[in-house]
Design a protein around this nucleic acid. Structure first.
Length: 686
DNA sequence: TGTAGAATCGTTTTT
DNA sequence: CGATTCTACA
């Protein structure tokens, strides 16, 4: 094992955490203060001291972050990262439940399905969960048409919020959806049906992973002793974004030794919509008595100019730990603010600057464009595409959530578990002639059969109409093609599907079917790493790192601010800093909403190392005039540079950018036009 | 009654 | 684009 020179690699603040990090510890780490580095070196330190890797648990916000950290630990110590336990709360819970889910004691209901979950349970993603709730609403026979009735999406998000925040559904409704407060009883009944359906299908959703583990830890002392005895040290990253349910999970898992070290920055808490509670980090010293508090306040990332602006942004918030971030970098330039005409003008400014930076030799991958909501990137995407500049988009539909990938996975899921209702629903509906009503009838019969050979030869207890029969026979044809491959590697099953009627279906359904088929090829290649269907399916439900095509490694990054958390770039553009867009209009109605939006702005600004651009349009997408973001007007003007200021200071200065478009707002191309253009562009690309 | 196809709508952030 | 709603047809 190589010896590490901790004194040389770390500063005094960080070193203190490394040496004194036993027992409960709270590390308040400002943006860019080497938080990841500290965790990595702390783990290396523990391993050097002789702690077996199996006894260290690392919990992070994304699986990608965990992998990166474990890789760095490996580079430092030579310890195989597979021996360390690391991942998100959800993936850790998943791992533990694979061992113990059978011991759950769940109430047995009318259906007679009681007890626990079988070990090979599947995982529903958000969309699956919503469609299952949709079926539950139907089954419950609610009067959804007469008056306003909550959509499956609303039912899911409210109940999820209640569970993650550990509050009553009624309270969650009052906070999030007061219009449906009166329907609390109906919603509870729907959730009840949904719970039953999940158990009948042996499926868990994301929330179940956390909640059922917590339930098991609370109720079963043997399981709790086994799991909490397993780890001598627990380290948690991004603690400011944990929610009460996760906090409870940690409390129940925490080892007797009390060695639990959490790292976070209350100024970067941006997930309250998911139940994240700053109270977790604020109350840590109370929950874990004798907790030591450390502070990391030296910022290694940004220039003083950027940091001054960031500090000014966050100083407008009241609910926070006082902090004093110091920059150690040399002075450079002030952040630049740019006012544009339309979104297209704004995009042109951004792309002009990007092109100039590229000419100066700045690598593409050290430039990022950040925005509040996914669709805000449209104009910049268009402009980059027009100029032939490569970019990598973060935050669109995830690979595993693309509809054709989900189609393929539905077949795999049905093979892995013939009573998987959402999977069958999906498979049945993509066959012409079969609609929601017949799909349900068919599913009720075939769910009992449990074997694909039986399903393929099944005679229905009711008459199939001509059209339905046609669709069903097609489906049977596909399944028969797949049966010979089902015992093999999941990759083969996917390839077989790509060579079946499904390819014909894709071709008739989508213009870009070739590309979608290629995606399925990618999926097959990816699946080759997994020996069994079950391994493969459970892993990908929680996997976040795989985006399929378009990973060039050297491209401009377009990303939502949420997805940019923890990352850094030489140059950062924060676009669309306009009223109603950022801060997001809807966030303003929530308690503490403005402060959370401001933290989001803070996170965005602190991603930049050397150059930071803040841009906004004056003309909205409908051709209406929009105000700049309140976050811009509240800033100390001295901290910013702008074209207008440069002009004032130096009359020689010529602004090469056109701040206003010369087309009057009324004559602007209508929204529909640019939608079409964006569609054409994406077809061109393929 | 159930389905297909057309028209219309909208979009915060995510494990 | 995707999700949802409306409309015409079997």
């Amino acid at each position: 094992m190589p010896t590490i020179n901790f004194e040389k690699e770390l500063n005094a603040e960080q070193l203190k955490v490394i040496h004194e990090g036993d027992g409960p510890c709270l590390v308040l780490a400002g943006a860019g203060s080497g938080k990841t580095r500290t965790i990595v070196y702390r783990m290396a330190y523990l391993l050097e001291k002789g702690i077996p890797p199996e006894q260290i648990l690392l919990l992070t916000f994304t699986n990608k972050a965990a992998r990166e950290m474990l890789t760095r630990v490996e580079e430092l110590t030579g310890v195989n990262p597979r021996r360390l336990c690391g991942g998100t709360f959800h993936s850790a819970a998943n791992r533990f439940l694979r061992e113990f889910a059978g011991l759950l004691c769940l109430p047995s209901e009318a259906s007679g399905v009681g007890g626990g979950f079988a070990r090979g349970f599947g995982i529903l993603d958000e969309e699956d969960a919503k469609s299952l709730i949709k079926l539950a609403v139907k089954e419950g026979g609610f009067d959804t048409g007469a008056k306003k009735f909550p959509s499956p999406a609303i039912i899911k998000s409210v109940s999820s919020f209640a569970l993650n925040s550990q509050i009553l559904l009624e309270d969650a409704l009052e906070m999030k959806q007061p219009a449906f407060y009166d329907l609390a009883e109906d919603i509870k009944r729907i959730i009840g049906i949904y719970e039953r359906k999940k158990r009948e299908s042996n499926m868990m959703d994301f929330d179940d992973l956390l909640f059922l583990l917590v339930k098991l830890l609370r109720e079963n002392p043997v399981v709790r002793a086994s799991l909490s005895g397993r780890f001598a040290y627990i380290l948690i990253d991004e603690y400011q974004d944990t929610n009460p349910l996760q906090a409870e999970m940690i409390r129940l898992l925490s080892p007797k030794s009390g060695n639990i070290l959490v790292v976070g920055d209350d100024a970067q808490s941006i997930y309250s919509f998911r139940g994240a509670a700053i109270a977790n980090i604020l109350n840590f010293p109370k929950v874990y008595s004798g907790a030591k508090v450390f502070r990391l306040e030296i910022n290694y990332r940004s220039t003083p100019e950027i940091l001054n602006l960031a500090n000014d942004i966050i100083s407008k918030n009241t609910a926070q730990f006082p902090k004093n971030l110091k920059s150690v970098k040399d002075s450079f330039v002030k952040p630049f603010m740019h006012q544009a005409g339309t979104g297209a003008d704004e995009a042109r400014f951004v792309v002009d600057k990007i092109a100039a930076l590229r000419r100066e030799g700045v690598p593409a991958k050290s430039i990022a464009v950040l925005f509040r909501a996914t669709h805000h990137s449209q104009p910049v995407e268009l402009e980059l595409g027009r100029r032939g500049i490569q970019f990598e988009y973060r935050g669109g539909t995830r690979f595993f959530e693309r509809s054709h990938i989900k189609d393929a996975l539905a077949y795999l899921r049905a093979f892995a578990n013939p009573s998987d209702e959402t999977a069958w629903q999906r498979i049945l509906l993509m066959h012409g002639g079969i609609g929601p009503a017949s799909a349900q009838k068919i599913f009720i019969e075939i769910r009992e059969l449990q074997s694909f050979e039986h399903i393929a030869n099944h005679n229905f207890g009711f008459a199939l109409g001509e059209k339905i029969k046609f669709g069903w026979n097609k489906l049977i044809g596909t399944i028969k093609n797949l049966i010979p491959h089902k015992e093999k590697n999941p990759s083969e099953l996917i390839r077989a599907l790509a060579n079946s009627d499904y390819a014909v279906y894709l071709a008739t359904e989508y213009e870009n079917s070739k590309d979608r088929l290629e995606d399925i090829g990618q999926l097959a290649a990816f699946a080759a790493n997994y020996p069994t269907l079950e391994d493969f399916l459970s892993e990908i439900a929680l996997y976040d790192g795989f985006t399929g095509r378009g990973q060039t490694g050297d491209a401009i990054v377009l990303s939502t601010i949420h997805q940019a958390k923890g990352l850094e770039w030489d140059t950062v553009f924060i676009i669309n800093l306009a009223d109603m867009a950022f801060p997001n209009q809807r966030a303003l109605f929530e308690d503490g909403g403005v402060e959370e939006e401001r933290r989001l702005f803070y996170v965005a600004a602190t991603r930049a190392e050397k150059k930071l651009f803040l841009t906004f349009p004056l003309i909205g997408p409908q051709g209406d005039y929009v105000q700049p973001s309140m976050f811009l007007s509240e800033l100390d003007d001295d901290l910013l540079e702008s074209a207008a200021k440069k002009y004032q200071e130096n009359s020689e200065y010529i602004d090469e950018d056109v701040p206003f478009s010369d087309t009057p707002p009324e004559k602007r191309p209508q929204e529909k036009d640019w939608r079409k253009r964006s569609f054409l562009r994406s077809v061109d690309e393929l």
